[in-house]
């Protein structure tokens, strides 16, 4: 008799642990699932309960080779988002009202708005202000940052042309308020308007729409180098270890997929990302409104990784 009671008690105990373990799934198991979720599913997950929200906020999922999403802005706070599955989402982002995206990398945007600069993660709405913006007005500026802006090693670089003969580079290291400035003699015929900017292997790379490439070693030598890009020339021994994907807007039929009218022009900010084993640079570009179309509308766009960053409020640079 006593034995039966014991085993019943045991089985009850077992049931209880079972239930308990299910409502508080071990975090390592949750993280493995989170790691495999797309952005939208991640947001569902996040809203389930406090414990899961905690798990998803402390997780920093491995960077998976997810395809890029495309975000358009430039009409007040109204923005549109095109997912990898070609689904359109309407999203309201007051932070993008009047702003221009200078760089997009690993899910973070570097934005310029009315003389100030900040990092912004559009999906979590996390914002990190960048001190003492070196730009008062945008002209041909291009920018890049070296890694996540929450990382201790992050460096921001903003480049522009001061004259037909000279480039000017402003750099800011994480934690510092003081931008450093350096100039580089580089004729415009060697590097035209910069459309692609990114950080790779310790160097900032700046590319124009043609064959120009200028690099700056921000970490060690602080040296500048200027190159001319050539295709399929076996006599050249230096080979780029990343791919450049030009005309991506047309290639991906962004205007068609986002159901944009003929009279819309889009100017984009590119990005740099890892797809499978390949590093790929998508430069910024512009699609003009179709000729003859009345009252054209100018939108801005940016390629972005669908990643979610939870940060403490009021995080500073």
């Amino acid at each position: 008799m006593e034995q039966i009671e014991m085993s019943e008690a045991d089985s009850n105990k077992f049931q209880m642990t079972w239930q308990l373990q299910w409502s508080t799934l071990p975090h390592d198991l949750l993280l493995q699932i989170i790691d495999r979720l797309g952005l939208i599913e991640f947001l569902s997950f996040h809203g389930v309960c406090k414990d899961w929200r905690l798990a998803s906020s402390i997780s920093s999922p491995e960077e998976k080779s997810r395809d890029l999403w495309f975000l358009t802005y430039g009409e007040g706070s109204k923005c549109s988002l095109l997912s990898k599955q070609d689904k359109i989402y309407k999203i309201d982002l007051p932070e993008l009202d009047g702003a221009t995206c200078l760089a997009s990398y690993k899910g973070w945007l570097l934005l310029f708005c009315n003389g100030s600069m900040f990092f912004f993660s559009p999906f979590s709405r996390a914002k990190i202000d960048v001190p003492n913006c070196p730009i008062t007005e945008l002209s041909d500026h291009a920018a890049a940052f070296s890694c996540l802006p929450t990382s201790q090693n992050c460096i921001i670089a903003v480049i522009s042309r001061t004259s037909d003969e000279e480039l000017e580079l402003h750099m800011l290291f994480k934690g510092s308020n003081q931008w450093s400035k350096c100039n580089f003699s580089c004729e415009k015929r060697n590097l035209n308007t910069i459309t692609g900017a990114m950080f790779h292997n310790g160097e900032f790379n700046f590319l124009d729409r043609f064959e120009g490439l200028v690099t700056f070693d921000a970490c060690k030598s602080k040296e500048w180098n200027s190159y001319r890009l050539v295709k399929n020339d076996k006599s050249v021994k230096n080979v780029l270890d990343y791919y450049i994907q030009r005309d991506h807007l047309v290639f991906k039929d962004i205007k068609g997929k986002m159901e944009l009218e003929d009279n819309v022009s889009i100017t984009t900010c590119g990005t740099f990302y890892l797809r499978g084993k390949h590093n790929i640079l998508i430069p910024g570009e512009t699609i003009e409104a179709e000729e003859g179309s009345e009252s054209s509308k100018n939108l801005k766009g940016v390629w972005i990784h669908p990643r979610y960053f939870h940060i403490e409020p009021n995080q500073t640079w």
């Binding site: 239930q19 299910w22 409502s23 493995q32 699932i33 495999r36 599913e41 997950f45 809203g47 309960c49």
Partner: peptide, 30 residues
């Protein structure tokens, strides 16, 4: 584990918070 985690992730795809809660039997404590 890899296989099942992927299966769960696939199941959650395009599902609401309510569905996920029901699926996992998690109580909403918000």
């Amino acid at each position: 584990l890899d296989f099942l985690c992927q299966a769960v992730a696939d199941l959650i795809q395009d599902k609401s918070v309510k569905f996920v809660r029901k699926f996992f039997g998690v109580v909403n404590d918000y």
